[in-house]
């Protein structure tokens, strides 16, 4: 069988049977692509996933495109992508027509009255878990709180909030990158409030850290550069 067709079928199967979104698909993709078909060596696969993960967009689609391209070029990339999304599109189209027909039935309405509060909980829970895993401290808690306030209360488009957060994180990453030459492994000790341009007053480091503040680090860096 030609590679693009194999890719299509592999990702179709994964797209059709994996519940729980992109990250749940990952282990299935690894099993198929690395273990069974041996298209990509294990370490290269995980290197690649690290890159793909940092991209915006649909994670499953990014993974499919990357694997497909690596295995069979442009045609492979598109075959894998279509394989990953066609099951979703088909299932939702079928359900949408059925759901439209029956949603006003009292039985369906009763069931969904029970489901809706549960969905709210299912969205709030992972966001709090994420705050925990991001090691947000009392000081850096301003970031998620400001985000929630801007989007939920002020009704500002999340698009602008994300752009502001990217700008803030980028400045933060640049500062951290200068601080530690190995690429800033010690990032856990400070997170900048993302909505603001850095000000001298903003405390960026935790008390534990003995490293000079990024601001003074930047200044000393500039001084060093100025010397010769």
């Amino acid at each position: 069988m030609k590679k693009p067709i194999q890719l299509f079928l592999t990702f179709f199967k994964i797209g059709a049977f994996t519940l729980g979104g992109g990250y749940a698909m990952l282990s299935m993709v690894e099993k198929a692509v690395v273990d069974q078909k041996k298209w990509i060596p294990n370490d290269e696969f995980w290197d690649m996933i690290a890159v793909v993960q940092s991209l915006p967009g649909v994670f499953a689609v990014n993974t499919a495109l990357y694997v497909g391209h690596r295995v069979a070029g442009t045609r492979g990339a598109f075959a894998a992508m279509l394989g990953a999304i066609i099951p979703s599109i088909t299932i939702i189209l079928l359900l949408a027509t059925v759901f439209r027909e029956y949603r006003d039935q009292p039985v369906v309405e009763r069931i969904f009255k029970g489901i809706r509060p549960c969905v709210v909980a299912l969205i709030l829970a992972p966001s709090l878990r994420m705050i925990k895993s991001a090691k947000v401290t009392w000081k850096t808690a301003i970031i998620p709180i400001a985000t929630v306030f801007l989007i939920w209360w002020c009704k500002i488009s999340p698009a602008y909030v994300i752009l502001a957060a990217i700008a803030g994180s980028l400045i933060y990453a640049l500062v951290i990158g200068r601080k530690t030459k190995d690429g800033g492994q010690k990032t856990k000790d400070g997170r900048r409030r993302t909505e603001d341009v850095p000000s001298p007053q903003s405390p960026v480091l935790s008390p534990k850290s003995s490293v000079p503040s990024p601001k003074s680090q930047v200044l000393s860096q500039e001084r060093k550069e100025a010397k010769p």
Binding site: M130, A141, T147, I151
Partner: peptide, 10 residues
């Protein structure tokens, strides 16, 4: 890494 707390808020 810096973006993560903002995404959680989102």
């Amino acid at each position: 890494k810096g973006l993560k707390p903002a995404i959680a808020g989102l």
